[in-house]
Amino acid sequence: MRNPTVLSSGFLGVNVEMLKRVVQEGAGAVTFKSIGPKVKSGHRNPTVLAYEWGMINAVGLPSPGYKDMEGELARMKEVGAPVFVSIYGASVEEFREVAEAVAGYNPAVIELNVSCPNTKAEGMVFGCSEKHSAEVVAAVKDVAGKVPVMPKLTSQALDVGRVAKACEEAGADAIAAINTVGPGMLINIEAKKPVLDYKRGGISGPAIRPIAVRCVYDIYEVVDIPILGIGGVTEGRDVIELMQAGATAVGIGSGIYYRGIDVFKKVCEEMKIWMKENGYKDVKKLIGVAHE
């Protein structure tokens, strides 16, 4: 990776052309939107809102299913940067099925979405449990061959460090943390109804940054594998904060809303300035320094 910023899963990653664009806008790596075993149409609108301190969404993992994504997956080399593929399933078997198909395209990483708060059967039900997360990781490792496997964890777990440790023991090559927080809800008081059609949605953006920092910190204490820190990054300082907590690379998603699609470029420039001012030449030297 030419820099530590990664387009987070769930944002923009619908086709190769859009991923290329995000790389041109400065991302060091990009992630395809979560792919499932079959067609899933997602929730009705409104699905994404921005409130004063963050965003809340219940897009609901829309996906054409891996078979209809093969045309895009086959072209991922054209993107010009490492491509991560996020996958989801409603059972260990479904995760295995999708992972096997995706691994054939040799992505840089297979990310396991065991943490989406917006669906009943998929997502957070796995990530809240050490046992279930580890089962998914083990099943996917079994079929992923040489492709690194990275579960994306949720802050809703009682002890995210223990879940991460269980995943590492099951063979995970890296840990991503965190997915959106909550779910939360906003009500339109004139309509007297929740604004999201799905009523509840995951919270992202600046509001959750302290939770992300804490989770990455907790995970770094207990695992030896690299951590992709995600949650509320909008500025270069935020990347440095997550790296000091223990992240090797940092995901950006909602930051696109706050600072534009070129947020990646802006954040990297801001990091460079900070590093110069503070005597850092190598970005890797930042990793985990808050633990010393």
Partner: peptide, 20 residues
């Protein structure tokens, strides 16, 4: 269009977002 805010990608035409 899902979000209208330029983050979800549902309205992509190649690398362009129709909403933003």
């Amino acid at each position: 269009m899902h979000c209208g805010l330029g983050v979800c990608g549902s309205c992509a035409v190649d690398g362009y977002r129709v909403c933003v």
